[in-house]
Deep mutational scan, measured.
Amino acid sequence: ALNRGDKVRIKRTESYWYGDVGTVASVEKSGILYPVIVRFDRVNYNGFSGSASGVNTNNFAENELELVQAAA
């Protein structure tokens, strides 16, 4: 299972961040479909780089994520 702070690569092909590595911000335990919230260094097309207006978190299912580096 994934944990907060883990570095993960995104495998959801239609995602803006496909192939990117993000950090797990939190994992919901309530049984929702996309329980893993991942935070990225770059914002998506809703904002400009360096601006706070873009979105830099997204929810994924565990099977859409590949663990790159476990949290220390």
Rank of each mutant, 00 (worst) to 15 (best):
E66M: 06
A70R: 13
E66P: 02
V68H: 02
Y45A: 15
R39Q: 13
E14W: 08
Q69W: 10
A25G: 02
S26Q: 13
Y34N: 10
T23C: 14
I32K: 07
V27W: 04
I10F: 00
N63P: 07
E62S: 08
I37G: 04
E14K: 05
S30T: 14
T13I: 14
A61M: 11
L67G: 01
L33D: 13
V55D: 07
F60T: 02
L2C: 14
N46V: 05
I37H: 08
I37V: 13
E62D: 08
E14G: 09
R9L: 11
G31D: 13
G54T: 04
A70G: 07
V43A: 05
R4W: 06
Y45T: 15
D6H: 01
Y34V: 04
A52T: 12
L67T: 03
V24E: 01
A61Y: 10
A61T: 05
A1C: 14
V43R: 03
G54K: 05
F40G: 02
R12C: 09
Q69P: 09
V36F: 08
A71F: 10
G31H: 12
A71Y: 10
G31I: 14
N3I: 14
Y45D: 15
R39N: 06
K11P: 00
P35H: 07
T57A: 09
A70Y: 10
S26H: 12
V8M: 00
A1W: 09
V24R: 15
Y18I: 02
S51A: 10
G54V: 04
E28C: 14
Y16S: 05
K11C: 12
T57W: 12
G22K: 00
E62Q: 09
E64T: 02
D20M: 07
V38S: 00
V21Y: 04
F40N: 02
Y45L: 15
L33A: 12
P35C: 13
S49T: 14
N44S: 04
G54A: 07
Y34C: 13
V38D: 01
K7Y: 06
S15V: 03
A70P: 12
I37C: 15
I37M: 13
E14V: 14
V43D: 14
E14D: 13
I37R: 07
V24H: 01
Q69C: 14
V38P: 02
T23F: 07
N63H: 11
N58F: 06
R4P: 14
G19Q: 10
V27R: 01
E62L: 09
V27G: 01
S15D: 11
G5K: 02
A25L: 14
L2D: 01
R12T: 08
R42G: 14
K29Y: 07
R9E: 03
N3P: 01
E62A: 10
N44C: 15
F40S: 03
V68E: 03
A70K: 14
V27N: 04
Y16T: 02
A52S: 11
A70L: 10
G50K: 03
R42H: 11
R12Q: 07
A52D: 13
A70D: 10
Y45G: 15
R12P: 03
G47N: 14
P35S: 07
R12H: 07
R42L: 09
G31M: 11
A72I: 13
A52F: 04
I32W: 08
D41W: 04
I32C: 14
V55A: 06
F40V: 03
D41Q: 12
E66D: 09
S53W: 05
A70F: 09
S49D: 15
G31V: 10
S51I: 09
K29V: 12
Y16C: 11
V36W: 03
Y34F: 14
G22E: 02
E62V: 12
V55N: 06
S49C: 15
A70V: 12
R4G: 06
S51R: 01
A72D: 12
S30C: 12
S30K: 11
N63M: 08
A25M: 14
A72R: 10
V21S: 02
E62I: 11
A70C: 14
N58T: 09
R9C: 14
R9K: 11
Q69G: 08
D6Q: 02
F48P: 15
L2R: 02
A72E: 14
V21C: 10
I37Q: 11
D6K: 00
Y45F: 13
N63Q: 10
I37S: 09
T23E: 14
D41I: 07
R4K: 13
E64Y: 02
V55W: 05
E64R: 01
T13D: 05
G5N: 06
S51K: 03
F60I: 00
N56H: 05
E62F: 12
G19Y: 04
N63Y: 12
A52P: 10
G31N: 13
G19C: 15
V43P: 15
D20V: 08
A72H: 10
A52Y: 07
A71P: 11
E66S: 05
G31T: 12
V36Q: 00
R4T: 13
D20Q: 05
N56Q: 06
G50E: 13
R39I: 14
T23P: 00
N3T: 12
S49Y: 11
T57L: 07
E66C: 11
K11F: 03
D20K: 05
R42P: 13
G5Y: 03
V8P: 02
